[in-house]
Design a protein around this nucleic acid. Structure first.
Lengths: 354, 354
DNA sequence: TTGAAAGCGATACCAG
DNA sequence: CTGGTATCGCTTTCAA
């Protein structure tokens, strides 16, 4: 706690009787310094209790901070209830941690979708990952670009100067829709994740769709429509079990003749909510209604039920993001990557009733 | 991506025809600069596409980086399955984000309990929070202290020069134990969280206990013993539903005469596992066995069951940590804080059978 | 209220 | 392989 003068590289160099530049080389592990000299420097450092070169000073000179921002749409307590978000970041840190690069959490809050410019402005950043947050018309994005901070958008929009890492949302959902069509389903409805984070829920209108923030939500909707044509869709206010349940009830709590025979939820979390809604309404799954999700996350508490879903390689996607970031930090421009997904048939889909 | 020269404060100052020091004041919002001058500087910045002072250079001079490290014991995918960890960090960021301070994730991996010195060495840090990770004999801690980075330990050991923020683990567990004693329970067993993260599971021996990494695990054990004396305890390899189930089975899958009438799990996650073990063994809760947890997290999927538990104010604990960090960053030495907990009786505890 | 100059602590570059 | 020196971009201190 005391503010006694900590040793600097110059102090250490003086003690070891070498030039500062030599001491620097000793710490950077360069092979262009004699082993004996390095030993002397390290010994001097140990004696002085020197913890190594100051990261901030090093950053200024070398033009990298070892910090990568993770832009989060909501507050952490919400964002991290989604296993997909957690797995993604897990994959990212798996790649970045060994490189001495850390992920800086930049969450939004209840009102704002993502961090503000004020939050970003004071923080060093080698790159930024839009992890769980849209970025169209985002002032934070403009700020990052002015600063020259390279950006990776996960599932985000495809913009110039932004590296895109995503999955085949549309194709995957279309495959799922074909699976349902093959089972004889004709009346299908969608439970959609938020099109933008403004607390809205309810039927998705064309106007609402036009103002969508999230590319993946749009694409997954298009995938279903590719097979079934326009279908009713109900949006949840957040990607959660509770909102899935609410939307599911809106769709299922109607006369049997109007009821969809299959509900496609845009996430497994929301699908679990639809399952619960069905149960509360006394509907059997899949006999009365089929339910499918998206993501392929582990929801052990659903056992013995296994959700039919579109499985995405979330952790691997995180690793791909991590590698892209690593390249960006080294000044290269990585390729966009679109990963494959596949339909995983569980116990929640079956032949259409009737 | 292009590396064209970005403007610096000096460029902006030149354009606005003021000295760099004046331009600096304009950006820091100091009142010691004439409004007209500030306008001129800001206008020049806008014209040049200047995004504001470089955070790294600013950090070097002002001696703070706006980055606080979050030391995580395991990889994120595991650490963040625990709602307690997420809520804690949520509280921390709630306080820190508005201050322009970000949390840097520093996870361990499958093998290591917490980040390595290499991970830390290159990263700027105003402070570090041991969020989900023990820190006795931790080389990372030694590194931080040599660097002069102040440390906050959440539930961690009480060490000199480390700010402690915790809860009344022992008192809370003892209160819970008294609740059980009042219900007539005499044969009580404990399902313990890992005493250290080395993959060990099984009965807790005295030797194992002596090597415990985590203060809270020890204290919660002592709380039960305060009321019941020595009790059998089984440790899980991680704080999770699966490990709770496994430990619960070890305790419950025995002749009825030897079976505990109540199981105290050290977390709600593990208690949920015990519940499942009981169910699989055909034991009714609470008629055949009472089950209690710790934390007071929301587990909506348990509904309609409500766990008896020791509720801790996790988000508030995070805010307290955030405030402590904020003080530390400003050079003050905050007080240690120990928060209260309370027993929350649900539907999983009842009178001892027989 | 503004300007000039001195670093913050390290690395990069160029000589030797 | 080692040393000197300029410089990274800004804030701070001190004068004017």
């Amino acid at each position: 706690m005391t503010d006694r003068n900590r040793p600097t590289l110059a102090t250490v160099a003086a003690r070891a009787e070498v030039a500062p530049s030599t001491a620097s080389l000793a710490f950077s592990g360069s092979s262009r310094v004699a082993p004996a000299t390095r030993e002397r420097v390290l010994a001097a450092a140990a004696e002085l209790g020197y913890a190594g070169p100051d990261p901030v000073a090093r950053s200024l000179r070398s033009r990298r901070s070892g910090v990568v921002g993770a832009m989060i749409g909501e507050r952490l307590a919400y964002a991290f209830t989604d296993p997909v978000a957690v797995q993604l970041l897990d994959g990212v840190t798996e790649v970045l941690s060994p490189l001495g690069v850390g992920l800086l959490l930049l969450p939004g809050d209840a009102d704002r979708q993502g961090p503000t410019v004020d939050q970003l402005a004071h923080v060093p950043l080698d790159a930024a990952v839009y992890a769980t947050c849209g970025l169209e018309d985002d002032p934070a994005l403009a700020h990052l670009q002015r600063r020259g901070v390279p950006v990776v958008a996960v599932d985000g929009p495809r913009l110039d100067d932004v590296v895109f890492i995503g999955i085949h949302d549309r194709r995957g959902t279309a495959d799922l829709a074909r699976h349902l069509a093959g089972l004889g389903h004709r009346r299908v409805a969608v439970v959609a994740m938020p099109l933008r984070l403004d607390g809205t829920r309810g039927p998705v209108t064309a106007a609402r769709r036009a103002r969508a923030h999230y590319r993946d939500v749009r694409e997954r909707l298009l995938g279903v429509e590719e097979v079934f044509g326009p279908v009713p869709a109900v949006e949840g206010a957040s990607n959660s079990v509770g909102e899935g349940e609410r939307a599911g009830r809106a769709l299922l709590d109607v006369p049997a003749a109007d009821r969809p025979t299959a509900v496609v939820a845009q996430s497994d979390l929301m699908a679990a909510g639809v399952l619960r809604a069905a149960q509360e309404l006394g509907l059997r799954v899949p006999e009365d209604v089929s339910v499918a999700g998206f993501d392929g996350v582990e929801l052990p508490w659903l056992a013995p039920v296994r959700l039919t879903t579109v499985a995405q390689p979330t952790t691997e996607k995180g690793r791909v993001v991590g590698r892209a970031v690593a390249e960006l930090v080294e000044g290269r421009r990585p390729e966009d990557v679109v990963l494959d997904v596949h339909v995983s048939v569980g116990t929640t889909t079956g032949p259409a009733p009737g």
